[in-house]
Design a protein around this nucleic acid. Structure first.
Length: 581
RNA sequence: GGCCUCGUAGCUCAGCGGAUAGAGCAGCAGCCUUCUAAGCUGUUGGUCGGAGGUUCGAUUCCUCCCGAGGUCACCA
């Protein structure tokens, strides 16, 4: 139940009956929201203003007509015209209290909407190079993508979570050669890792496994035979590492898509380029050297170019390297065509800040391969600076400081890692303070929100002790006399709960999971605030054995808050503990 | 030089084209010792980087400028 959506429908219907000539376009801009200043009422709509202009009417007159229309609505206590043409509604308490019953009825589904309309969406995130365990730099995008996927799922999209394995480039050759060295080492040779190869210890077990599987037979093979064998095994091993790191963060994917499968003479890349050529989207030409500093090895040569500028990119993009192999972007075009042909008309890619220059060409690629039918939203996650006690700290393997995802999770836990990374807009750089995250104060939002849930649970434990034998389940509390909730503090809390459904749908449509985290923080603050009032004024305590009717009504409220906290934390992938230790 | 992101209170940050721009911390003034836990209440503090534009209305959208960060054929 979403009070705001409910009224948006009613207002829209009212406008249509008042002004049959009103356009859908104008109605699309109609908003019902809580006014910034609660003194203005419970709900506010801009309806009269968005409608008046195209109809050539005075907004205040339209507002007055609209307000008059709601005089007979039993849920509306008053409807007033304000400012340039707002209509402010004051809503009957009964409707707010219906929200509490709705939470009891809908439980985990309270807030679930169908704004996605069942549309299929492909959300691609992480897509780290499989050359080692996950670096901490990948964490933000991983958490963001995973949470966005959950949020969209909860909002009625049919979501596929996808990981693109960059297993085709030269870094994989390097990885294979690095592994061969570890294999020799496992066979007893003493090795020296030249610069340019991967020195990480995580390849040691892979070398040992190769020694076990092949004995010394790889040594007798020409490198052209040995490398592919090694490649397959080390890629599997690296993906296993990455999946384990992701699992530590409670992140899972539905599809792992290998770039390698796109290559080959009949592969997707070849087919896609042939198709693009037929469409006239490819030509042979020369590029201007980049302005400013020219790269040292700039070579002005004729190359195979994709007409990215036709689709909004800044320059046309090369598809074939000087050695004749495909560029990374050529593979990416084919990959996104593959997504489109799999039936995805909506795609989301989560990329790191260093890929911001890649956005336009990706959008161009999607437009081109879908002939304008599909859209892609590229979300850039900015850098995270790791801090300790307000000081940035360097991450270097040698000094033993934290570098990998596993290290961070081991240090502060998945809950804190996830919540903190989501407690900031994705497109702004952030600091991640290890000391703060472990603090149990209001400064630490993870603790603050989880504590609100634990405190709600604690209230129920007290109630069970005070009122033995009474069914205190949320479902049973639907019949509580919630009209007994009459103080401003109580109704404020009810109104906060009522905000949840619109918060979720707005966040899902905007692809902004951080709004969920901020909402939960606000809800927690409202709940803690109310609890604190009970400390000063005993009559405001939730559990009051002398007045069981009121107690049940308040428990319905506490239960609703707890349920919304659970629903929100579930989207964020953060646990909602019953008690904090 | 081009492109991308950011610029909001002393600090860290919210802000969905709407009304007098919000919260936490810090500061100031009081109060308090727990329905297991973060003490609470009040209060001070703003040229929303700057200038134009679109709009009934701009912190929000557009253009230019300033500042910070990132990025810049063929790497992935």
């Amino acid at each position: 139940m979403d009070v705001f959506a409910l009224f948006a429908t009613r207002v829209s219907a009212a406008l249509k009956s008042l002004y049959p000539e009103v356009t859908e376009d104008a109605l699309g801009r109609l908003v019902v929201e809580p006014p910034r200043d609660p003194a203005h009422g419970d709900l506010s709509t801009n309806a009269a203003m968005v409608v008046a202009k195209p109809l050539g009417r005075n907004p205040r007159e339209a507002a007055a007509a609209l307000a008059g229309h709601f005089a007979s609505d039993k849920d509306v206590i008053s409807a007033e015209v304000a400012g340039p043409g707002f209509v402010n509604f004051r809503i009957a308490d009964a409707l707010w209290l219906d929200v509490l019953r709705a939470v009891g009825q809908e439980g985990a589904d309270f807030g679930r909407t169908n704004v996605g309309g069942g549309e299929r969406v492909n959300v691609e995130y992480v897509s780290a190079n499989p050359t080692g365990p996950m670096h901490v730099g990948h964490t933000r995008g991983a958490v963001f993508g995973d949470t966005l996927a959950s949020l969209m799922e909860y909002s009625g999209y049919d979501v596929t979570r996808e990981f693109y394995i960059n297993d085709a480039g030269s870094q994989i050759e390097t990885l294979a050669r690095s592994t061969l060295l570890r294999y020799r080492e496992a066979l007893g040779e003493s090795i020296d890792i030249p610069s340019g190869l991967y020195p990480g210890d995580y390849l040691v077990p892979v070398g040992q496994a190769l020694a076990k599987e092949f004995g010394d037979t790889l040594l007798g093979m020409p490198e052209s035979e040995a490398v592919p064998l090694v490649k397959d095994r080390v890629l599997d091993a690296m993906m296993a590492l990455i999946k384990a790191d992701l699992a530590d963060l409670r992140i899972h994917h539905d599809v792992f898509f290998s770039e390698r499968t796109l290559h080959g003479p009949d592969g997707d890349i070849a087919q896609t380029l042939a198709w693009l050529r037929e469409q006239g989207m490819i030509y042979e030409g020369r590029l201007e050297p980049p302005k400013g500093k020219t790269p040292d090895e700039w070579e002005n040569r004729e190359q195979t170019l994709f007409r990215a500028t036709d689709y909004g990119d800044d320059i046309d993009r090369p598809l074939v390297k000087s050695d004749g192999s495909y560029t990374y972007f050529a593979a990416d075009i084919a990959y996104h065509r593959n997504k489109y042909l799999r039936g995805f008309k909506h795609m989301v890619n989560v990329l790191g800040a260093d890929h911001s220059g890649y956005v336009k060409r990706l959008q161009a690629a999607v437009k081109a391969v879908s002939q304008g039918e599909a859209d892609i939203d590229v979300r850039i996650c900015q850098l995270v600076r790791l801090m300790k006690n307000g000081e940035p700290f360097k991450m270097s393997k040698r000094s033993g400081d934290l570098v990998t995802v596993a290290d961070v999770v081991a240090e502060v836990g998945a809950d804190a890692t996830r919540f903190m990374l989501l407690f900031r807009r994705n497109d702004a750089a952030m600091d991640f303070d290890f000391a703060l995250v472990k603090e149990q104060t209001r400064d630490n939002p993870v603790f603050y929100v989880q504590y609100a849930h634990a405190r709600a649970c604690s209230v129920f434990r007290v109630a069970e002790r005070e009122m033995p034998g009474v069914d205190l389940s949320l479902l049973a509390l639907r019949s509580a006399a919630v009209e007994r909730l009459s103080t401003e503090a109580e109704l404020d809390l009810v109104r906060s709960v009522a905000q949840w459904p619109r918060t979720v749908s707005a966040a899902a449509l905007a692809h902004e999971p951080h709004r969920i985290a901020f909402y939960l923080y606000d809800l927690a603050a409202a709940f803690h605030g109310f609890w604190a009032k009970g400390k000063e004024d005993v009559s405001l305590r939730f559990v009051n054995a002398a007045d069981p009717t009121l107690t049940l009504a308040r428990l319905a409220l506490v239960g609703a808050v707890r349920q919304v906290l659970v629903n929100g934390l579930t989207i964020l992938g953060v646990l909602a503990p019953d008690e904090l230790s």
